[in-house]
Write a protein that binds this DNA or RNA. Structure first.
Lengths: 220, 220
DNA sequence: CGGTCTTTTGAACGGGGTCAACTTGCGTGG
DNA sequence: CCACGCAAGTTGACCCCGTTCAAAAGACCG
C-alpha cells in the first residue's frame, strides 16, 4: 500500500542534498509494513530516500530461496544503482516514509553541479563497498561471525544507541546472512548466554550490546 | 614484477573508449604471473584495463581466509570502483598486459563528453550487478549449483568458445565460490561423469561444455 | 629423471540445515 | 476481559553437505 503525502520543493538531507542541491522536485510516499516498493525487473524510473522506517532489498531463486542484499535505514538512498531496470525487489519492513525523485532529474542536477559526478559516484561505490564486504561475509565467515558482524553493523548504522530496536525479523536477518532463522536465533541466544548482548523487555528485537569490542572481535 | 611497455595516445577499446574517447593518455604495463597490481588500502590513483591475461581481486580476513570478488579478463576494467583507497587486492593470475590511466583524467574526460556520466555510472553499476548476483550465489546456492554457475559465467565471458581455457587454479575458483578446492574438484569430476563437461588433453584447465542448457539449469 | 605444485580421490568429522515441538507476543472478536 | 488464531521466536534431536585430513597421482620444469 502506498500513500502520497505531498509534492514539494524543499531542503533535502544527506546524500540527496550533496548530489542534487535543493533544486530537485521530490515527493513523499508512505509504504505500509510488508509492501513492495518496486519489483525485480521493473523499470527503474525513480530514486528513493528513506525518511523514516526501513526497507529490505532482495533477490529470489526460482524455488523461493531468498538473498537479502541490504537493509536501508533513514537517510539511506536506494534504487539508484540501476541501469534501466531494477535488479532486485524492494519492500518496506515496517511503516516507512520514502522520498522519491526522478532518476533523470538527479543526473541532470548532478551535471550542472561542481563535484556532482564525484558525489554520484561515491553514492554508487558505497553500495559496491557494502556488497564487497558482504561477499566476504557470505563466502568465508562462520555463522557466529556473521551474526556478530551483523550486530556491529547495525549498531554503527543506528548511531550506537544504548538500546537498538531491530526493524527486521529473524528470517530477514537469516536471509541477509545466508543462514536459516534457527541458526540466527541460536547464535543470538549464545551471545546472550555469554553476556555479550541483552534482550530488553518482552520483545526479542530490542537488543543492548554489552561489550562492543568483544563483539567486533567475534566478527573478524 | 612490473614492466612498462610504453606510454602513448592511441585508440582504446570498449568501456574505456566509451568513457573517455580517445583523448586520454595511457600506458601499458606487463605483470608476471602471481604478482600484485595493487594492494588493499593503497591509494587508488589509477584505473586499469586488461589487454591480455587475467586478474583476480580479493579480500582477506585476519586469519588468512580469502574471498575473491571477481576475475577480470581482456577488455575488463577494474580498480575504478574506488573512492580514494583500494578496498581489495588485485593480482595477475597469468602473464598479463594492463593499460593504465589516471583516475582523475578519466573523470575529467567524462565530464566534457555528452553521456559520459551515464557511461561512467554504467561501468560502476556493472560491477555492482555482478556483486549482487554473486551474493545470491554465496548466500543461497549449493556447491554443485555454484560450480555450474561459474562454468556458465566463464563460458559467456570468454565468448562461448568450443574449448575454454581457465586461467585460474582450483583454489582460486574455490575462493571465488566460497568453497574448498576439494569440493570444486569433486563437483567438476561429477559433471564430467555426467557427460556435461569434458577435460581436454592433459591439463585440467581446458574444459569443453558439452550441454550448455543443462549446465545453465543446474545453476538456477 | 627428481622436486614441486596442482589436482584428484577417499575417509571421517562437524557446523549448520531440517524437522518438529513448544512458547510467546499480539491482534481480533466474542 | 478472556478466548482464540496466527505469526514470530526458541530450543532440541537428527542428519547431511561440505570441510578437514590424508594419500596418491598427475603436470610441469629444472
Amino acid at each position: 500500500m502506498l500513500v502520497n503525502i505531498n509534492t514539494h520543493r524543499r531542503p533535502i538531507d544527506g546524500h540527496l542534498a550533496a548530489l542534487a542541491g535543493e533544486r530537485v522536485l521530490c515527493s513523499e510516499y508512505r509504504y505500509h509494513k510488508g509492501t513492495e516498493i518496486f519489483g525485480e525487473g521493473e523499470e527503474a524510473e525513480y530514486v528513493y530516500q528513506i525518511v523514516t522506517g526501513a526497507v529490505r532489498t532482495h533477490k529470489l531463486l526460482a524455488d523461493g530461496r531468498r538473498q537479502i542484499n541490504a537493509f536501508h535505514l533513514p537517510c539511506d538512498m536506494f534504487g539508484f544503482e540501476n541501469g534501466s531496470n531494477h535488479r532486485f525487489t524492494a519492500e518496506a519492513i515496517v511503516e516507512t516514509d520514502v522520498r522519491i525523485m526522478r532518476r533523470g532529474s538527479v543526473i541532470e542536477a548532478t551535471e550542472s553541479r561542481t563535484g556532482g559526478i564525484r558525489s554520484l559516484l561515491r553514492l554508487v561505490t558505497q553500495n559496491l563497498k557494502h556488497a564487497e564486504d558482504h561477499m566476504l561475509l557470505l563466502g568465508r565467515k562462520t555463522a557466529p561471525e556473521r551474526v556478530a558482524t551483523f550486530l556491529v553493523e547495525m549498531d554503527a548504522r543506528l548511531g550506537h544507541p544504548r538500546l537498538m530496536t531491530l526493524p527486521m525479523s529473524r528470517r530477514d536477518i537469516a536471509d541477509y546472512l545466508g543462514l536459516t532463522l534457527e541458526t540466527v536465533s541460536r547464535a543470538l541466544s549464545r551471545l546472550r548466554d555469554q553476556n555479550l548482548i541483552r534482550f530488553e523487555g518482552t520483545t526479542q528485537r530490542r537488543i543492548e550490546l554489552l561489550r562492543r569490542e568483544q563483539l567486533a572481535e567475534l566478527g573478524p
